[in-house]
Amino acid sequence: MRFEKILWWLFIILFVIGSVLIFFHLLALGALAALYPEVAAFLIGFLGFWLFANRLIFGYGGLANSAAAYAKGHEPSKEELLARSRQTVSKLEDWTITSLLALWQAGLEPFKYAYYLAFFLVFLGAMLFELNFFEGPLAAWAAKGLMLGAAIPTLLVFALDLLANAYLKEAFLREI
């Protein structure tokens, strides 16, 4: 929990510094991007898709952590779980811990599929360039770099989703 908070603030600070730097060095950055278009596309794909994936990565990470802790015998408070999953329920006392965890997972589901759709479109674009549907080697490099940059946060989302699923199953097994 504390680690997450530190990471979050580190991210915010880096984002502010980066924004200011980008704003004042737009020309220099443009020249650099023109020199290395594939690296620029890779970075844009990575940072941009991380922005979309941030909620999913921390959501599934937190879910996996909570489920693992519960499966190992730790008892989290229901209010805290509810707050972290950003859901509201009536009659909280009727909900078990695992049902709250499942609710948390269900809340992340729409974001996950919207994210996968965006990645699929980028992947499709890169493939179309690769198969020479469009002309231009430079654009093909940019499309491929963008796709590979986006692949990193996508892999994280995919892996954390699977991990959360696995720990959730262990948590269910404990309650039965």
């Binding site: 590979l148 692949a151 892999l155 995919f158 892996a159 699977l162 991990l163 699923n165 696995a166 199953k169």
Partner: peptide, 21 residues
């Protein structure tokens, strides 16, 4: 449905993505 298996699969996928990059 096994955390260790998930880690193995993720590491394999990460290797492939790193290879591609």
């Amino acid at each position: 449905k096994n955390p260790a298996g998930v880690v193995v699969i993720s590491v394999l996928l990460a290797l492939f993505v790193g290879w591609a990059i």
